[in-house]
């Protein structure tokens, strides 16, 4: 491969990587905000993403609703589903079992329920695409070719993430959420309503997943199994340290770029290995993840 081509590949890999990476970053963010406050890896995050995509598809394509109704309705549905799951199912499980493992299993249960529901409706039988709301004309950035849709995906994802960072750092509610993540007992002692706070976090995590679904579903074929993309989001979260929000975002972009680079420079059949390779390298060099802070050893 000559240098000229390698340079083009490099630019294309970064551009495409930032686009798919922004979806991984959003999902990783959704996973990490829950993990930080509930200590539970939500294994249903991918299915929430998938189900939100189908809600939007159903409302927009089958019910012919206007898009300004479809978007908020989808986000609201994702918020309510996750908040209610936290309140009704997880609070109940937590009451009867002290061990966190039961909560994790409950999230696995949710993932099967959502997948089963979508399968039952039959919409998932034929792969479909959500109609693109932004034209898919190509533009050149440097020597990389991207579509206007790609730019819209990246821009929206960055804006959404910036909004959440703002919320966590500068609003009273966001600060309370961080407080719950750091020290739930102290948070209760200053008057934070833990139950409400958890519902809100799970709901927002659902909203972030739904945004990710709305962004990417015009670019992929939707099936009931599209939630498996969440593996890449978990990879992104692990690369970033699993408890750091900036880490999740950077991890998402890294996974996206590595994936595209591997596809361009090595082989498209090696793409599936790319995220695991990234995890391996990061964990060997920095076991706590890129943004994981100091390595601590827990005594048991």
């Amino acid at each position: 491969m000559d240098l000229q081509l390698a340079l083009i590949f490099l630019q294309q890999g970064i551009a495409s990587g930032l686009v798919s990476g922004s979806v991984y970053a959003l999902l990783a963010l959704a996973i990490v905000i829950i993990f930080k406050t509930s200590d539970v890896p939500n294994f249903a995050q991918g299915e929430v993403f998938m189900a939100a995509g189908y809600v939007a598809l159903y409302l927009f394509v089958f019910q012919q609703m206007p898009i300004w109704v479809v978007l908020p309705a989808t986000l609201l549905a994702a918020f309510l589903a996750m908040a209610l799951f936290r309140r009704v199912v997880l609070d109940q499980v937590a009451k009867s079992a002290k061990d966190l493992v039961y909560l994790v299993i409950a999230t696995l249960g949710l993932s099967y329920v959502l997948k089963g529901l979508v399968r039952r409706t039959g919409f998932g039988d034929t792969p479909r695409s959500f109609p693109a709301l932004v034209p898919t004309d190509s533009v050149m950035i440097g020597q990389a070719s991207v579509t206007l849709l790609d730019l819209a995906i990246f821009g929206t994802a960055v804006a959404v993430m910036a909004a959440f960072f703002w919320m966590f750092n500068y609003t009273k509610t966001g600060r309370a959420m961080r407080a719950v993540g750091m020290n739930p007992k102290a948070a209760q002692l200053v008057g934070v309503d833990l139950r409400r706070c958890h519902m809100l976090i799970w709901g927002l995590s659902g909203v972030i997943s739904a945004i990710a679904a709305l962004l990417i579903s015009p670019k992929i074929l939707m099936t009931a199994d599209m939630g498996s993309i969440v593996m890449l989001a978990f990879a992104a979260a692990i690369v970033g340290g699993f408890s750091s929000l900036p880490g999740a975002v950077v991890g998402g972009f890294i996974i996206g770029i590595v994936e595209n680079m591997v596809g361009l420079f090595i082989s498209s059949r090696a793409i599936v290995l790319a995220p695991f390779l990234a995890i391996l390298i990061v964990l060997v060099l920095r076991p706590q993840g890129l943004f994981g802070g100091k390595l601590t050893i827990k005594k048991v």
């Binding site: 600060r175 309370a176 407080a179 750091m182 020290n183 007992k185 102290a186 948070a187």
Partner: peptide, 21 residues
């Protein structure tokens, strides 16, 4: 509370603000 139940990764100012939650 007993012990050191502060919000460790928050600034002193943010801890005080949390008091007025």
């Amino acid at each position: 509370p007993e012990g050191r139940e502060v919000f460790r990764d928050m600034s002193v100012r943010e801890n005080l603000d949390m008091g007025a939650y």
